[in-house]
């Protein structure tokens, strides 16, 4: 029960923190006053809520309604396997990493359906483009996560944290965290991996969304950012492990750190054309994830 409340609190706080960090980073990069950016997420949210909902011609109403809600649910489901302290997780199943993998895979489906269901050109292009980039990015993360599970000899997230008491996985498997961060950019539709919701498609999969629908989609993206950051902090940075402070505080601090890194990448790194990104993914990054897996295996046998 405590873990469930912790998950909901972390999600709510993460949405606020992510939105604020995004606004501040945007203002800093653009040279605008940063102080005004601190409150702008609330203003923007209120503005979105007050706008009328627009309807496209012959949309798939069911999927259009379900997509943002499912995105939000996937973020919560991903967080449910993360321990805030030893044994303090909503569900400490032995297949936690596989559950997280299923959430990643379903994000691709949900983003595609969000673009597809509008029955409009730009969201549809965003949806297809996202699938092409999102699936290989997810493959990479799978190999990286298997690498992280090797020293723990378990697919349970709690066991992965406990295996990092001596050395955190970010140091033990140096390729793991950077490759995993790419997935984070991809499943939260951010910066160099934002092929679904990008500005060159006027907002991509949510180009035709307005009002509460748009607000919910944005919030769900930030919720997924929180869930991903907590997962990265748990699997690669030791999660709740740390001295002096209590476990949950360490987890929140590490989560915030990963979020800030992702927000910085979002606003500082440019997006390359999808075709070039696809080539990089299959010819450079995927082989790198194999190297990471071999590295993890050799290290675990040592």
């Amino acid at each position: 029960m405590t873990a469930l409340i912790a998950v909901l609190l972390l999600l709510a706080a993460g949405i606020w923190f992510g939105a604020t960090a995004d606004a501040v980073a945007e203002a800093a990069v653009a040279g605008h006053p940063v102080r005004a950016a601190l409150t702008s997420p609330f203003r923007r949210a209120a503005l979105m809520l007050s706008r009328q909902a627009i309807a496209t011609e012959h949309p798939d109403r069911l999927n259009r309604l379900l997509a943002p809600a499912c995105y939000l649910v996937l973020a919560a489901a991903g967080l449910s396997v993360i321990p805030f302290a030893p044994g303090m997780a909503v569900t400490d199943i032995a297949t936690g990493l596989v559950l997280w993998g299923a959430c990643e895979a379903l994000v691709v489906v949900v983003v595609f359906l969000n673009g597809w269901s509008a029955n409009a050109p730009l969201p549809l292009i965003g949806g297809y483009r996202y699938v092409a980039i999102g699936l290989p990015a997810m493959l990479i993360s799978m190999f990286v996560l298997i690498g992280a599970a090797l020293p723990a000899q378990s697919l349970g997230v709690g066991a992965v944290v406990e295996s990092q008491r001596v050395l955190i996985n970010a140091v033990r498997q140096p390729l793991g965290l950077p490759l995993f961060l790419l997935l984070g950019l991809s499943i939260t539709l951010r910066g160099p991996f934002d092929y679904g919701d990008s500005a060159d498609l006027a907002g991509g999969t949510h180009a035709e969304a307005s009002g509460a629908h748009r607000l919910l989609w944005r919030a769900a993206k930030l919720a997924m950012l929180t869930a991903f950051s907590a997962m990265a902090a748990t699997v690669f940075l030791g999660g709740y492990l740390g001295t002096v402070l209590p476990g949950p505080a360490w987890l929140v601090l590490k989560t915030a750190l990963v979020m800030l890194v992702l927000v910085a990448i979002t606003h500082l790194v440019a997006r390359v054309p999808p075709a070039r990104m696809l080539t990089w993914l299959w010819t450079v990054l995927l082989p790198l994830s194999f190297v990471d897996l071999v590295w993890a295996g050799l290290e675990a046998m040592r």
């Binding site: 199943i93 297949t95 596989v98 895979a105 691709v108 489906v109 297809y128 699938v131 699936l135 997810m138």
Partner: peptide, 21 residues
């Protein structure tokens, strides 16, 4: 069969997405 169950969800999400595409 926790592994098979969750792996089925995982695999089917990817497979059906690829199939639709």
């Amino acid at each position: 069969a926790p592994y098979l169950g969750i792996a089925t969800i995982f695999m089917m999400a990817v497979e059906m997405m690829v199939m639709a595409l």
